[in-house]
């Protein structure tokens, strides 16, 4: 059973091809990493799958729904967390939980229960009433992730979720990802931290809008005869002709 099926998906901005006919599938419950240098097209690809950007051509289905015709059905079943901070800084922790729970149609009881659970898990007890603006970045990111999966989506899209976060917090963040994956949520994550690539079940490496490699990290390393994902990434990304 596939969570995401993509075939020849392409996005052009005028004459610039940001994503060039990519094809891949993501299995349910998988942690799927999307790697690439800045400008490689990974965010654009993800935005098409989330329904934020309309593909120029190609096919894609997310959670069994077509990205062209059923964008609204997809939206009910996915979670999304972008590199731009996505919570409201001028609302409190609890108010953010209530708002996002509310717009995904959770009942008052569900919001209360899941909110409690979330606060407990993130160790935010006693901090519910403070403005999100006052939380340290790492906590904000963990909170944003937890809120993004509060409505129990079948897939969660994470766009460079750990950008600018210290290694310890990144570690904790990945523990949250593993916990979520254990409950059956498919994780689709873009990153350019190569140690994070090692945590994924499978990774796709994008170079200049194309997928240049797609497999389990162990297999990629073995096939290319390289010791780390970092080396694998460099040997592929070196060929890139476009940068920032």
């Amino acid at each position: 059973m596939f969570s995401i099926e993509v075939e020849s998906l392409t996005k052009k901005f005028g004459s610039f091809t940001a994503v060039n006919s990519i094809t891949f599938t993501v299995k349910s419950g998988e942690i799927f990493g999307f790697l690439g240098a800045n400008g490689a097209g990974k965010t654009t690809a993800m935005r098409m799958l989330c329904g934020l950007s309309r593909p120029t051509s190609g096919q894609a289905s997310v959670a069994g729904f077509d990205v062209y015709r059923q964008a609204e059905e997809i939206k009910q079943r996915i979670g999304y967390m972008s590199q731009k901070f996505s919570l409201y800084a001028d609302l409190t922790v609890l108010e953010n939980i209530e708002f996002y729970g509310g717009i995904y149609g959770l009942t008052r009881g569900e919001i209360k229960d899941r909110g409690e659970e979330l606060i407990e898990r993130l160790d935010l007890r006693g901090e519910e009433e403070i403005m999100v603006a006052e939380l340290p970045l790492g906590w904000k990111q963990k909170l944003a992730f937890s809120i993004a999966i509060m409505h129990r989506p079948s897939i969660v899209f994470l766009d460079e979720p750990t950008g600018g976060v210290d290694p310890l917090t990144r570690r904790q963040f990945w523990e949250l990802i593993y916990e979520a994956a254990a409950t059956g949520i498919t994780i689709f994550v873009t990153t350019h931290y190569m140690d994070e690539a090692e945590y994924c079940d499978r990774v796709a490496i994008m170079v200049d809008g194309n997928i240049r490699a797609l497999d389990a990290p162990e297999k990629l390393k073995r096939d290319m005869g390289l010791a780390t994902m970092e080396r694998v990434f460099y040997s592929l990304a070196r060929e890139a002709t476009r940068g920032d």
Binding site: L52, F85, L87
Partner: peptide
């Protein structure tokens, strides 16, 4: 500007 609109656009808010 702060980017929260993205978050709303991926949500089922009409």
């Amino acid at each position: 500007e702060i980017g929260t609109i993205e978050q709303l656009n991926v949500s089922p808010i009409r």
